[in-house]
Design a protein around this nucleic acid. Structure first.
Lengths: 206, 206
DNA sequence: TCCTGTGAAATTCTTCACAGCC
DNA sequence: GGCTGTGAAGAATTTCACAGGA
């Protein structure tokens, strides 16, 4: 399978949402122009993005919503279940544990950890907060694929290293610390202050 | 002031964090190579990014941490206070209200809103949850500059439009809905499912 | 010697534009 | 006529590489 450019992957993820809406609405085909309008891009961009799948769009008609949905889900690895562990049961970790719609997309939260003894043992949705001391053992036992890192920034590197050592190869990082990890570990960052600062810049630049 | 490229703005925000650490550590100068190592980029990239400020680095020495910090803060508009309102007092909204370190960066959360009558009136940190029906009036009265949108996706467009009409020109959007807004409103997205899907893709692509 | 500043080259990503099929 | 697929052009971004100051 050809390697797909990073910006394309992000857009595929967006297209998928609109496709699901279109499919629910009973539309059996969709044109690149319609997808472009939903996704805030251009029809040429959409066609380029979809050209990874070979040519299965129909000229004059568009793409089969059903087939396109299936293709994108496969490319994004959404045709299977991923086990997710959350480290840090503070406000962000808790929010992620209860994030609506993750399970139906195949992201199953199988554990949430915290270091605070007062939190360990408490119930959170249908999980019980586990002690972060058992992180490695639990990650292995539960075959966790993805970790959500929601610990204070000064602990992020340490926890991330432990996750990597335990076999986790994908981390969604809410901390603001730079992480040094083995190359085979993919990290995506959700950096709240950084995004606010980008907004600040946009407001200030006038 | 010359327009700064989007990726550059993001990196400036990262550099700023490391600079603050360096300054705390008592370092008075820093080289592009050191910044690059912290920020996961290259020294040439750092120098290009900083070339917006004209040439005030010293050859053989590097940059003054103090001056560089001040320059970046100014570029990012962090030399002033921004008023932030949060819409949605669910888990994500609450997490943002309590996000550690925003205030000291100049992001003052001045109000949090919710539509649920059971939540309205409750205390959250040092705020009282306000009724979203008063959104426009409060936004104007409090001179809100930035809004954090943490409402269910099916309500995001409606609330965003109200915010824009009330004068908000910057939105940090946690929903997964596509927003259609006047051009002068800047939106940054924190799309959790999208990032997880990018991780899923990275894991699946082997 | 160390490190900046910056044109030029390379790379990545987006847009254009049009042939061709339904 | 409407819409795809795709080379080619264009724009944006990163990397190279080196002259020159501290």
């Amino acid at each position: 399978m050809k390697k797909i450019a990073e910006p394309t992957v992000r857009r595929l993820s967006l297209y998928l949402r609109f496709l699901e809406d279109f499919e629910k609405a009973g539309r059996s085909t969709i044109s690149s122009g319609e997808l472009a309008r939903s996704g805030g891009t251009t029809s040429a961009q959409v066609r380029k993005d979809l050209s990874f799948f070979g040519s299965f769009g129909k000229r004059g008609i568009g793409y089969s919503t059903h087939d396109l949905t299936a293709h994108i889900r496969e490319i994004l690895g959404l045709d299977r279940v991923w086990h997710v562990v959350i480290v840090g049961a503070g406000r962000i970790g808790s929010a992620m544990a209860g994030y609506y719609g993750l399970r139906e997309r195949g992201f199953h939260v199988v554990a949430i950890f915290d270091a605070d003894p007062r939190r360990v043992g408490q119930a959170l949705d249908d999980l019980t907060i586990a002690d972060v001391r058992h992180l490695e053992a639990d990650v292995r036992r539960l075959h966790a694929h993805i970790a959500v890192l929601a610990v204070p920034s000064d602990q992020a590197q340490g926890v991330a290293a432990r996750l990597a050592k335990a076999g986790v190869r994908a981390i969604l990082d809410f901390s603001t610390a730079p992480l040094t990890l083995p190359e085979h570990v993919t990290v995506r960052r959700m950096n709240v202050p950084l995004e606010l600062e980008a907004l600040s810049h946009a407001l200030a630049a006038r």
